[in-house]
Amino acid sequence: MTDPAISVRVQREDFDLAAEVSALSSGRKDIGAVVTFSGLCRDEAGTLGALELEHYPGMAEAEIRRVSEAAMVRFGLIALTAIHRYGRILPGENIVLVVAASPHRQAAFDGANFVMDFLKTSAPFWKKEIDTAGKAGQWVSAKDADDSARDRWTESDGKANS
């Protein structure tokens, strides 16, 4: 069964932060805190022309949803929106958005953080670098730091998360 409080989208188009926060909170009076995280494409000191984001259609949505469901339960969130873009993304453009809502701020901060940490290591997306001349370069390598960021959620209390 799909939780109506969770909205997951994988899309080529950009998203609007204010519109997403408003869509999630409009008409509700139980939300006391909304945390938004957005991830953008950096130009890597002028060397990067674009990122080409590949994804696994179907599984990308499913995996973000699994992470989102875990976050809802673990932090007692009352609404969550997660959007990830694919295709060609230019420096300065949005890549990912997480909006977490809860009665109090700590759960919203932690929930958004948790979703990002698990999304980065388990949602099937891959970034390829395109240089400023438009030539395809290297696939971005996965970072150990991302695994460590994810693992800290299991070290403290030993709970399974995803």
């Binding site: 990912v96 980065k120 290591t121 949602a123 099937p124 891959w126 970034k127 696939w139 390598s141």
Partner: peptide, 10 residues
């Protein structure tokens, strides 16, 4: 069955 490298989204 899908085969792929470690993921680098987000």
């Amino acid at each position: 069955i899908a085969l792929f490298p470690p993921m680098t989204g987000g």
